[in-house]
């Protein structure tokens, strides 16, 4: 009885393998049996009859190099000094004292950075002492 079952299982496996192999051969591209069947999974060039459609050739936007500055609009966007009004010329001539005092600006940023560093150091020291609430408001009765 066991032999009969074993032979039946082996035969079934052989039949299954033979069927699968036949189907695999039939689906290969270029094989005579699959021509026109549309069952191929390999990419085929799409058949088109005309040129590829580009609505407005030349309007494509190329990717901007990330480290270059944006255009200010080209030469048409420039305003020559000669075209400035008297007030604008006066402002441009006096620029260092009207917003362009870079020494003062840099000093302000340096001061703010020093303050932030001091706050970070104080916060770190408080954390090392196990204080979890801000010392400035701890126990303060307004």
């Amino acid at each position: 009885m066991r032999n009969v079952v074993l032979v039946t299982v082996i035969c079934s496996v052989l039949v299954a393998v033979a069927t699968w192999k036949h189907q695999a051969q039939a689906s290969e591209p270029g094989s005579g049996s699959s021509a026109g069947s549309g069952s191929s999974t390999t990419s085929q060039p799409e058949p088109i009859t005309g040129d590829p459609v580009i609505p407005n050739p030349g309007d494509e936007t190329p990717q901007k190099p990330p480290f270059t500055m944006y255009s200010h609009g080209g030469s048409n966007a420039e305003i020559p000094y000669a075209q400035l009004s008297a007030d604008e010329k006066a402002w441009a001539d006096d620029e260092p004292s009207k917003g362009g005092d870079w020494q003062a600006i840099n000093n302000a940023y340096a001061g703010a950075s020093r303050l932030r560093a001091q706050e970070a150091g104080a916060s770190s020291a408080a954390a090392m002492l196990g204080l979890t609430t801000p010392l400035g408001s701890t126990g303060v009765v307004p």
């Binding site: 001091q118 706050e119 150091g121 104080a122 090392m128 002492l129 196990g130 979890t132 010392l135 400035g136």
Partner: peptide
């Protein structure tokens, strides 16, 4: 405030606590 630091508390000498305490208050307005 009672704050549990664990074994690292053994390293907290008076000098270290003094330094940390002054530094912790240094950023107050």
């Amino acid at each position: 405030i009672r704050t549990e630091l664990g074994p690292v508390a053994a390293k907290y000498t008076p000098e270290m606590m003094s330094s940390l305490l002054l530094r912790a208050h240094s950023a107050l307005a």
